[in-house]
Design a protein around this nucleic acid. Sequence first.
DNA 1: GGAGGCGTAGTACCCGGGTACTACGGTGGC
DNA 2: GCCACCGTAGTACCCGGGTACTACGCCTCC
Lengths: 225, 225
Amino acid sequence: MTTVLIADDQPLQRFGFRMLLESQDDMAVLGEATNGTEATRLTAELHPDVVLMDVRMPGLDGIEATRRIVATGARTRVLILTTFDLDEYAYAGLRAGASGFLVKDAQPEELLSGIRAVATGDAVVAPSLTRRLLDTYAQHLPTGTPDDTPARAADDPRLVSLTDREREILTVIGQGWTNTEIATRLHLAESTVKTHVGRILSKTGCRDRVQAVILAYDTKLVEPS
Amino acid sequence: MTTVLIADDQPLQRFGFRMLLESQDDMAVLGEATNGTEATRLTAELHPDVVLMDVRMPGLDGIEATRRIVATGARTRVLILTTFDLDEYAYAGLRAGASGFLVKDAQPEELLSGIRAVATGDAVVAPSLTRRLLDTYAQHLPTGTPDDTPARAADDPRLVSLTDREREILTVIGQGWTNTEIATRLHLAESTVKTHVGRILSKTGCRDRVQAVILAYDTKLVEPS
DNA sequence: GGAGGCGTAGTACCCGGGTACTACGGTGGC
DNA sequence: GCCACCGTAGTACCCGGGTACTACGCCTCC
């Protein structure tokens, strides 16, 4: 028996999932959460095998909730669901420690088999995303011919979804600039800077600018001095 | 004529400095500031040759004020003064871009010659501090015998004044932990964590934890993964 | 046995950072 | 010509981080 917690802010969506899952005699829905905080709490309480996690939720989003659940060390697996915006959240979700990433317009059978897969410790990724992941990673796989480009790390997988401008901003974040400084020195409104920073964080799955700095160093976007 | 701005929160101290400086016919006191914010503002207004900067001031302290003044690119030099706590602030002050660092119990002549020195672009450091700086750096100077220790960077000059515990905390800051996480995982009260973090920032001269992360990477306290 | 350093802890306060939105002009692709 | 993406900008709101203090038990060193 696979126990599942549903985390989605849309009641109708939750209802659909519940109906689907309860139609299976090897699955049981332990509860429903309407936001990330609730998802985290209920997971700690109910210990489901799998959390079906929506990305976009008010308050604590699915990515961050995933991170927290994984951080507790519980054996609960998280399967992230999203409507679209694949590129946007894929890395974030997987970095957060999710066991899978599916799109909501998947066939019901795909979802069910996905749940069964992650419950047993496997991982699943939506085919459309798998493709993109492969394309991305392919450039970084060892080739037959020796590759002497010394880790052109600026196009690290974790950064691919960033626009040039965002990468620029991430660089100066990595140099320790505050939002105000970025605004002044780059001749931008502080609100614009915040918009950029917010998008960078969500795309990369970083919780805050501190982790963004770490990412910038890890990807060699900025180098230790 | 060397023009000077006095920044100190103690009226009596300011008075003493003013008297001393005005007794010299090659020096003029342009004004007095009682905190860092005022010091920054008055510097921008009056363009003194030298700011005599106290470290401990309410609100914006002397270190941060120094950083801001230096950041403006003005040709004003900052000479930092402190009562004691040399180790504590020395690095912070020098990293902030100060041209000098003197102790308040110095002889009046020392102070005067110090001011003249920094006004002409030289740098001065209190002898007691010089000693310590040398001791610190000496370990890092190239020796006659080849040194095969691969940059045991944990005792980087910028970190020497940190206690073991503080270094520990800095490490996890560098790993992106929030104060709450540090408190939980290290079994501490959050207030304790904040105390540690505050001391780390003031000792290292970092403005905030973001810069602390950068420092942690630069000193190889934490390594890119 | 005092002094000082260290690690711990607390309170009160303020501000910058981050989130959640909306919006709008430019540009490039279909 | 329209749609999607990008860069820009704004408002409103909340919270974590940082500062400024005080305090106390434990060591170590003189």
